[in-house]
Simulated assay, not measured.
Amino acid sequence: MAPAQQARIGQGCMTIQIIRPADRQAWLAARQQDVTASVAAAVLGAHLYTTPYALWAEKTGRLSPDDEETEAMERGNLMEPVVVAMIRKRFPEWLVTYENDRAYFRDPDRRIGATPDAFIVRADRAGTGNCQIKTCSEDAFKQFWLDPDTDEVVPPTWIAVQAITEAQLTGCAWACVALVVITWRGTFQLHIIDIPIHLRLWNRLVTKVDEFWAMVASGEEPSPDWQRDGDVVTDVYRDSMPERRDLSADRELDMLIHQYNRARVEAAGAKAVVDQLRPHIIHSLGNAEIGLTANWEVSARTTFRSGSQSRVLRVKPRRDPNASF
């Protein structure tokens, strides 16, 4: 890893380290010591994909390391130069700086970091702006970015927090998101969304990050979100030890175990019923792929996998039970 450069940047004259990693592994190592902009909204409970518990598990090393580049990450990395080219083509009067060097900006005191994508100078905005580059599918755009009432493009909260964090750590006067939507036709739609830098939000984020690191130092942990953190919890406690724990005083746990056991028994019974009814239905279909009853449409098409074949049974209500066959 290259030695860190020091700079006085942003609100409150933060001392910022600028690390220029030699490779992806060095970049990942630099990020591990901080709450990074891409997941910063998690400490506010406002991140779509990361919870406070998952962030705690990652930063304390309890979560199994996953340094593999996902398909979404690969798409984003490959599309960055394309998005930059689109910005320069659409707005030739803008000065766009794009290094693509994974330069990592961090506040070592607050332990907040960011890897900015690009910087823009525009005649209609004072100073340099931070530009966060994003790509998404048309379905994701409609679901997460488009306001259904006004048809305005509104970035998800976690992305707005990311852009504000990057602007603060890089000393930028303003921030924006350059979003490219990949349509079902294979075309690209570019949206430039300005992100107001709300200092109250930034100050709240800084406070929450301080509280997060204080919790980590104390050995405490946040409460899991049981709707979202199930896989993280089982990963954190993936290794068993030869010991016995007395949990007899935990009445709530005793009730949870009762609910779990009842659900498990009911699920096993339901599976037995399903396994019995499935061949009955296929027998009535014979070799036909689709059958219609008074209220149901049934399909059982043959599929071939790993040298074997089977019929996949699917059922759905008939749209018009009174229609003719």
Rank of each mutant, 00 (worst) to 15 (best):
M1Q: 02
Q6E: 14
R8E: 13
I16R: 01
Q17N: 15
I18E: 04
R20S: 02
R20W: 06
A22H: 12
Q25R: 11
L28M: 11
A30G: 01
D34I: 03
V35E: 04
T36F: 00
A46G: 09
P52I: 01
A57M: 09
E58W: 09
T60F: 03
G61C: 08
D66R: 06
E68P: 01
E71W: 10
G76W: 03
N77L: 05
M79C: 10
A85W: 06
M86Q: 07
M86I: 01
I87T: 07
I87R: 12
P92Q: 06
D101P: 04
A103R: 05
F105C: 02
R111N: 06
T115M: 04
A118R: 01
I120H: 00
F144R: 15
E152P: 10
E152W: 10
P156K: 14
T157I: 15
V161E: 03
T165C: 04
A167N: 07
L169R: 01
V177S: 05
V177C: 02
R185I: 09
F188M: 12
L190Y: 07
H191Y: 15
P196E: 02
R200S: 14
N203M: 10
V206Y: 07
K208A: 14
E211L: 14
E211F: 10
A214F: 04
G219A: 04
E221I: 00
D225S: 10
W226L: 13
W226K: 08
D229N: 11
G230Y: 13
H258D: 01
A263K: 07
R264C: 08
A268I: 07
A270W: 09
A272N: 14
A272Q: 13
D275L: 13
L277Q: 14
I281V: 15
I282C: 10
L285M: 07
T293E: 00
N295M: 08
G307P: 01
P321W: 05
P321T: 10
F325T: 12
